[in-house]
Design a protein around this nucleic acid. Structure first.
Lengths: 230, 230
DNA sequence: CGAGTTGTCAAGAGATTGTTTGAGTATTGG
DNA sequence: CCAATACTCAAACAATCTCTTGACAACTCG
């Protein structure tokens, strides 16, 4: 066969990319960065690590080509190198969800019980929006909503969940979404709505997947709270 | 935020999947298994490692959910757990090719110079096949061809490349493919054809990607050598 | 400038990983 | 049942990785 040394060198390099994701904290970093760029400080607090350690992990990711950075004053902002990295991370989650024993239980432990929470696919949501029969809730921190959200979605601040959800009309048809499959916000919102007797479903995936699919995205124009069903 | 301990446990588990691919030899194993199932013995020789070491690596992959195995007599055959693993591996290659410095050079070192070798996309090939104006060459070992190939493709045994290619007519419009982007066979065949004055292009990806895309696949019925242009 | 922030670097302890070696287990065929 | 084949297991050592600590560097603002 062809040159073994050359083949080993190539595959070692390819494996480096996987190795970079092969650490729980770095995986969390990539998951956060799939939402958009973040400063080292914010990332450190998101993953519960020291700045020094977080900075080190980010450099490992950068050396593997998964993230890039830019300096802005005294802050350094990291971002995913491209959508491809998001696809890669998404493919990994997919494999884990289907083939790794115990992941489902760990997700339960992290997100709370999920039985009885109905889901809706992207395609179903699109046609529901077209017919105007649905209230879409974006349950992410406001800056993320402003950076891009599903058109017609209303921003619900996760830190003021119970306040803002009180205004949702009892007979509304609600769909909530947040950062992705391992994001707790939408689950919390839906459980809260259910206890009010409101029927709410969860978008199967989150906003990053919506954007990667090339679907329409609205920017800015924060609408705080639920004003109308349209 | 939600429970840090639960989140760490979940992401550690997700990272385990990446860690399993985070070794050059294991990456090679996955790349081979993307072609179809293989015995430990064959895999060991493919990656140039001892049986003991190969067996160990396969178990690491199995524990991460990437591969599964079945016993057949005294042989144990390993395979990818599902197409999802192929997608994951493909996503990794994509990230590496676009964002990792040096990969392009390593690919050159492994596959030989690639300038001057034209490529053709799947869609282009499909319409060329429809209009009947193309000779498609499957440059993989015969067992792999028999296990599944692009309809209308002719099998060319990589070990008897120069013999079999001599029969290709000078004016043929040729497209060659093999195992994937890091497979040398199609490159060799195309260089050989070019030296005969035959115009040949390379299918951008390989057979596994064709099959994963849900495109038609023919099984068995080995046609040895080039008989006709149709 | 000088103090305060933000981020990076370097060194070291402790855990994990990769490979080799040699032994052990399951299955086949004589 | 014995020998051979195909594979797995266990121990052990070197190499690598993770996280902590404390110092250092870049930048901002008063």
């Amino acid at each position: 066969m062809a040159d073994r040394v050359a083949k080993e060198a190539l595959f070692d390099r390819l494996a480096d990319v996987a190795k970079a994701l092969g650490n729980g904290r770095r995986a969390e970093l990539v998951d956060v960065l799939a939402q958009g760029e973040r400063s080292v400080e914010v990332l450190a607090s998101e993953v519960g690590q020291s700045m020094a350690n977080t900075s080190h992990h980010l450099q490992v990711l950068a050396r593997a080509g998964l993230v890039a950075s830019r300096r802005d004053g005294s802050h350094v902002h990291y971002r995913l190198s491209s959508e491809r990295v998001g696809e890669f991370w998404s493919a990994l989650r997919d494999v884990a969800a289907h083939h790794v024993a115990g992941v489902s239980e760990l997700v339960d432990a992290y997100l709370g019980p999920r039985e009885g929470i109905a889901t809706i696919t992207r395609d179903e949501l699109i046609s529901s929006i077209d017919t105007g029969k649905v209230v879409v809730l974006d349950v992410r921190p406001l800056p993320e909503y402003e950076a891009g959200h599903i058109p017609s979605a209303i921003s619900i601040d996760p830190t003021r969940l119970y306040d803002q959800l009180r205004k949702v009309p009892r007979d509304a048809e609600v769909v909530a979404y947040c950062r992705g499959p391992y994001c707790a916000y939408a689950y919390e919102a839906i459980r809260s709505l259910a206890s009010q007797g409101v029927h709410a479903r969860r978008l199967e995936e989150g906003f990053p997947e919506w954007r990667r699919a090339g679907l329409p995205v609205a920017i800015g124009t924060a609408v705080s709270g639920v004003a109308t069903t349209g």
